[in-house]
Amino acid sequence: MSGARVVLLGGTKGIGRAMARILSQRGDRVLLLGRDVDDLERSAADLAVRSGAAAILSARCDLADPSTFAGAIAHAEEVLGGIDRVVVTAADFATQEELEATPDRALALCAINFSHTVAFCEHARAALARAGGGVLCVFSSVAGERGRTPVVIYGASKAGVTAYLEGLDHRFRRDGLRTVCVKPGFVHTSMTAGLKPPPFAGEAEQVAAMAIKGMDRGTPVVFAPSIWRWVMLVIRNIPRFVMRRIGF
């Protein structure tokens, strides 16, 4: 579907930046939300210059600050004249060691990745409903599939997002809402800079293209790169005592 009115939270970097470029270059109208207004403006200009369309006025929306959510969605509805799709790639990441060292940091991450993300999506869902249904695409992670040693807290925050999106699907599909839960494996972006890439590491552009295909088709769960679907099928079925043994 091209010409869609899309709101994207997290388009200044990584997978979100790649999605914003693909969408605007195919003719969608992409409005960016994010936490740094100057940087957002540069990213909005990037989309405009690359696509040849006029720049779309972005707005501040900080996942650490829920008081910004309602205003950001209202701004987007006004500028775009209604919203067909909402994408959330924004999220926080820190290693398990960093989070254990500072409980406040763990609290902030859980808030940004889970409770505030849910609150933002509730605003977004209402706006999508006003335009007749729409697509809500949120980035979770393969880390949310199973409790694992290196990502205890981050993984738990993503497991929450996965469960929330599945629940929304069951509850609102009849009303026309399509939810897309994207579960990337390791992707080379700033989020993972400095970490050692495991096998099957992906690129932002590749994951972005798969997420967009998922939105176009209304696929409820997208593993990216797709090999992770099969890897996770195995991992979900490993008995707990074995998981404990392999310290995975």
């Binding site: 970097k13 540069r42 990213s43 200009a45 990037d46 210059v49 690359r50 700033s190």
Partner: peptide, 9 residues
């Protein structure tokens, strides 16, 4: 390579 935005035309 990540600082790859087009700024104006």
């Amino acid at each position: 390579i990540k600082a790859d935005r087009f700024l104006s035309f």
